[in-house]
Amino acid sequence: MTVHIQDSPARAYREAGEAHDVDALLATLADDVVFRSPLSATASFAGKEQVRELFSVAFSALSDLRYQSDIGDGRRRALTATARLGRQEIHEAAFVEVGDDGLIKEVTMWVRPLPGLTAMMAALGPGLARATGRPGLPWLVSAAVKPLAAMTRLGDRTLVPLLTRRRSR
């Protein structure tokens, strides 16, 4: 069965994301939702409270979130969107699984380009670390990810153009 975009169970999720409305977004999620992070294979957020913390931090850092695609059936949806993180444009893709109750039970997200992903890591990491209540962790996370974000931004601006331009023979 194909579900049209206006009937998609993910529609309210998309609209809440574009509006940066954390409560409306949480209303689309199952209590035991799992969000798989684009930042790490070991990072996932389980349950509405962890996902609330994640999206609260993410919405404070992102702007101009706009969804372009919502493709799939009533149970599995692939969503694509663009957003801005400061001056960096990012592209995201999310795979959303809907449970029998019509609520989203799992979200797996990917982000590109690499400078956008590392900028997201630098922007969200310290905020998520603060939510743990562990003193010093926000500083440690910031110290670890900011150089990575700077290196990928520099590499994207200076090295990648050298690799993609061919010399004439």
Rank of each mutant, 00 (worst) to 15 (best):
V96L: 03
E106M: 10
W110G: 00
F95Y: 09
V98Y: 01
L85H: 04
Q88R: 11
G99E: 05
E106W: 09
A83C: 09
Q88W: 02
I104K: 01
A81I: 04
E106D: 08
E92P: 03
R84K: 15
L85T: 05
E89G: 12
W110T: 01
H91M: 13
M109N: 10
R87Y: 06
D100S: 11
H91Q: 10
V107Y: 00
A81W: 09
D101R: 05
D100C: 05
A83D: 02
A81Q: 08
A93H: 14
G99F: 04
Q88M: 14
A94D: 01
T80K: 07
E97L: 11
I90R: 00
A78W: 12
E92L: 13
L85A: 15
R84P: 06
V98R: 00
E92A: 10
E97G: 04
A94L: 13
E92G: 11
L103C: 08
T82A: 09
D101Y: 05
I90C: 06
T82C: 03
I104Q: 01
G102R: 02
L85Y: 07
R87H: 10
A83M: 14
A93G: 14
V107A: 01
A94E: 00
H91C: 06
E97R: 12
E89N: 12
L85N: 08
V107M: 00
A83F: 08
R87W: 11
F95L: 15
M109V: 15
D100H: 06
D101L: 06
V96T: 04
G99A: 13
T82L: 03
E97H: 07
E89K: 09
D100K: 04
F95M: 08
M109G: 01
T80M: 04
I104P: 00
I104V: 13
I104T: 03
T82H: 12
G86H: 07
V96C: 02
E106L: 14
T82N: 06
R84Q: 12
G102Y: 07
I104Y: 01
A78K: 11
E92H: 07
T108F: 03
H91T: 15
R87V: 12
D101V: 04
V96M: 02
L103E: 06
D101I: 05
A78G: 09
G86S: 11
V96W: 01
G99V: 04
I90H: 02
V96F: 01
T82V: 13
Q88L: 09
A81S: 13
E92S: 09
A83Q: 05
R87F: 08
M109T: 15
T108Q: 07
T80S: 14
V98N: 04
E97Q: 10
A78Y: 07
T80N: 08
W110E: 01
A93S: 15
E106N: 11
A78I: 15
V107T: 09
D101T: 11
L79Q: 02
